[in-house]
Nucleic acid binder design. Structure first.
Length: 231
DNA sequence: GCGACAG
DNA sequence: ATCTTGTCGC
């Protein structure tokens, strides 16, 4: 997959802000995706007290959500966690993992926000722009915006508002659990994003893509059989 | 100036 | 995100 390396990753928060202001103008929040045959989920974890970033990608077939392919990448962590700048910490490693894929996904579900971001450039937008893939932001908690309570029924949602603008949706994917924060990342509208997140979610709160990627990003051994081994 | 604050 | 076993509740 072709990835655009358009700016440096070693920078200050000030420089990162400037890049976000520049890239936000290129984000597309209208449907510009074809038939979806493969959906990818992304997740990031850390090792060695945070000094190593580990990214995992899980590609599932759509709409049956059967596992298709996986990729894992590791690299030294170079940027701290600062709310509003998550992509500068995680994207480089996620791109490494994406480059390993044999199958280019038709849609990418990201851990974190899309345009539901103070400068409308969450990690889903950033990844979508650099890979040119349709992307959706699936946050487990809120970064910015306000909203009413979400009805308990699965599938119900309320708009997420920020500065008088609808930037996303707070979606109930499962009764009795905290709702998810959905927002367009790139090349997809909010309503379509909600539909895909629901289609990728079965009996759990999180989409199957995210759950699968999370397992990969958590498994320490790169190639473990779940058995004991001697060194 | 005082809180809030994706993962 | 990460440190971590059992335990409270539907």
């Amino acid at each position: 997959m072709n990835i655009k390396q358009r700016h440096p990753w070693v920078l200050t928060a000030e420089e990162a802000t400037a890049i976000q202001q520049e890239l936000r103008q290129e984000v597309v929040t209208e449907d510009q995706l074809g038939a979806v045959q493969f959906v990818a989920g992304m997740d990031v974890g850390f090792e060695a007290e945070g000094s190593i970033t580990r990214a995992a990608i899980a590609v599932l077939r759509f709409p049956d959500l059967q596992f298709h392919e996986q990729a894992i990448a590791r690299r030294p962590t170079t940027f701290p966690y600062i709310p509003g700048y998550l992509s500068f910490r995680e994207v480089p490693t996620v791109l490494d993992a994406l480059e390993q894929l044999q199958t280019i996904p038709d849609l990418l579900l990201c851990d974190g926000q899309g345009i539901a971001h103070p400068r409308r450039l969450g990690i889903a937008c950033h990844l979508g722009l650099l890979t040119d893939l349709p992307a959706i932001g699936v946050g487990k908690s809120r970064l910015v915006g306000r909203h009413e309570d979400v009805p308990e029924q699965r599938g119900s949602w309320v708009p997420l508002i920020h500065q008088k603008e609808t930037i996303g949706a707070v979606l109930r994917t499962r009764p009795g659990t905290k709702p998810l924060y959905i927002s367009p990342g790139h090349k997809i509208s909010l309503l379509t994003a909600i539909e895909y997140v629901m289609s990728c979610t079965t009996k759990y709160r999180l989409p199957e893509t995210t759950r699968f990627a999370h397992k990969l990003a958590s498994a320490k051994p790169a190639q473990s059989n779940g058995q004991l081994s001697i060194s």
